[in-house]
Amino acid sequence: MDPQRFHFDWSSTGLGSLTLVRYDLAAEVHSLAEPEHELLVCRVDASSAEVGSGREAMDASQPWLTDGARVEARWLQTARVRALVIDRGAAQARVRQITGDDSLVLRSTGLMPRDAASGRHWERTVEYLEDAVADLPPDGILRAELERHALAVTLSSFPTTVHESMSRTAQRGAAPAAVRRALAFIDENAHRAITIDDVAVAAFISTRGLQYAFRRALDATPAEYLRRARLAGAHRELVDGTTDSIAVVARRWGFSHPSRFAASYRREFGQAPSATAAERRR
């Protein structure tokens, strides 16, 4: 290896059960990926990149996913590599909760994205995650939501056993009691880093089953109710006269985009969050 050509710039960020990795590497490289306990999703962006596997033909211009199948990557000069390393056991537990299928074994059924659009969507999501996590605290609502979003996009972008399970009928039993338990859990815990999967666990039902139950009982989704509960929490802080800025309050309650927060707040309460804060200061 020529020391004059070598350059390595690495960064990684943990998001619960997954790790977001990005590095720029200028060198002649031949890498091998064969994970044992993780799902590895990777995109090598280099003009000279080649990727291959004995399992199927691969396209170096697309991201790829392996849960153990051997994948080799080569490049000659500079490459930017983006990857998600996902704990396989945690991901399987999460998708079992989402689908309500306790027998589901999470496996990849193909290395390449379901189609080119899915591959681009995954890449855009990873780029968004890189920007979003830059200023986040080590825990909190936004970090939990980003973890769930990253996993959901990955599993929808690549062929896995999740798709077969999701095609089955959702769990529909115990809907009224489940909805009541879910509403109580949201009201008590909206300030915490919970997702709708946590709500479903507290309601003793699958995530899909809870979504069906909410639609039938409330003509809404659990995510919509959780969002409204968090808007209400932000509203209470502004009414009480918090010294924090509106942007800080919004982020604390899980809203990463101030403009979207302001629009949702106005729809919910009939005025901008700045107007609420101004009223309190009078």
Rank of each mutant, 00 (worst) to 15 (best):
F8N: 15
D9P: 00
R22W: 00
L25P: 08
L25F: 06
H30G: 08
S31F: 00
E34H: 09
E36S: 13
H37D: 15
H37Q: 15
E38I: 03
L39F: 15
V44F: 09
S53F: 13
G54M: 03
R55M: 14
E56Q: 15
E56L: 13
E56I: 08
A57W: 15
V71G: 10
V71D: 09
L76D: 11
T78C: 03
A79F: 05
R80L: 00
R88A: 15
R88V: 10
V95P: 03
G110C: 07
G110K: 02
L111C: 02
M112H: 05
P113L: 10
H121A: 14
E123C: 10
T125D: 01
V133C: 03
A134V: 10
D135N: 04
E147M: 06
R148H: 04
L155H: 03
Q171N: 02
G173Y: 05
A177R: 09
A182G: 11
I194N: 14
D198K: 10
T207R: 13
A213R: 06
R215D: 09
A220V: 09
P222M: 06
Y225S: 07
R228L: 09
R228C: 05
E237Y: 01
T242Y: 08
W253H: 14
H257S: 09
S259H: 11
T276R: 04
A278R: 15
